[in-house]
Design a protein around this nucleic acid. Structure first.
Lengths: 118, 118
DNA sequence: TCCTTAGTTCAAAGGTTATTGAACAATTGG
DNA sequence: CCAATTGTTCAATAACCTTTGAACTAAGGA
């Protein structure tokens, strides 16, 4: 873990909610939840935003404590901080993801290129 | 119900999350959840923000579909739209409120003047 | 009718957010 | 070493958010 992350107890509910309130970031989190346990690099999200913009949104998610980013080579391996989020806000992440999955106004996550590699 | 409200299926998850991501609005929702069933007028929230500012935040909550505002005389009676939120996003509201209650960084809700009248 | 109470609307200010392209750094493979 | 790959930083822009005070509307009571 190379980049600055908040500790579990520094994670703030209003900030988490505000960060998840952006459609691009919510899509990133849904994507991560689908592939839970598998660290993904930024390029997996290039269909959601430009490279520059992704860097911005991924930093927001990391700073809020929603994701963990580890530098490996020239890549960043990104994972959901489910353990810390569940400890801090039990049930919240699951109900947000379930709500997103049930919201027909949001694009379905996990089509075509999700399966190109594991 | 006099003011414009979204229908249940117009309620958008990202908008709800973004709206709840503001500390003042989150406090209002916690307050409403504590007094669930009892319609509150705006003056009940004057310890959270100025009258003008409250008008702004309550409009945001109403437009997002989080609250219902009914005009009665010169008052607005405000209630949580728990029925619609639960139908649309099961468990979300409860986990947000529980998370807020468990977040020691947020001020405790429902002290002193909550009991002045029912 | 006049005043008070309850809340909204308006315009302005100041701040933050999202997005972009260009330039940059760092690692890795040839 | 050179070049490609991955991702970040910077500056700029446009949009949106929050907060404020002053002015306003609408209802209710004396």
């Amino acid at each position: 873990m190379s980049l600055p992350h908040p500790t579990a107890d520094q994670i703030s509910l209003p900030i988490v909610l505000a960060v998840l309130g952006d459609p691009t970031r919510l899509a990133i989190v849904r994507y991560l939840a689908r592939k839970e346990g598998v660290p993904l690099n930024c390029s997996k999200f290039l269909d959601l935003a430009s490279k520059t913009n992704l860097s911005y949104h991924l930093a927001k998610l990391r700073e809020a404590g929603v994701t963990r980013s580890e530098a490996v080579g020239t890549s960043r391996l990104i994972t959901l901080r489910r353990d810390d989020l569940d400890k801090r806000f039990p049930g919240l992440l699951d109900s947000v993801i379930a709500a997103a999955d049930g919201d027909s106004a949001l694009p379905a996550v996990g089509t075509s290129e999700m399966e190109v590699d594991a």
